[in-house]
């Protein structure tokens, strides 16, 4: 039964990681615009390198 001392904490920690990840996602506003997130991947990337890519000014 000693295996329980490893498996139970492992199961709980994995569960907790999931819970914390969800709460973090909720707090950082990732659930605020689910439709928008789905559409935004279709937009061309606008955050191309501004200065580092080309010759320095």
């Amino acid at each position: 039964m000693t295996v329980l001392s490893i498996l139970i904490p492992a199961a709980l920690v994995l569960g907790l990681i999931g819970l914390v990840a969800f709460l973090w996602a909720l707090r950082s506003g990732q659930f605020e615009d689910l439709d928008g997130a789905a559409e935004r991947i279709l937009l061309p990337d606008e955050d191309k390198p501004k200065k580092s890519g080309g010759p320095r000014e």
Partner: peptide, 17 residues
């Protein structure tokens, strides 16, 4: 939502035991 997440987490783990 927070309550739902906590209850879901607890339900899953307690049910397992």
């Amino acid at each position: 939502f927070i309550a739902l997440a906590v209850a879901g987490f607890a339900a899953g783990n307690v049910m397992l035991l």
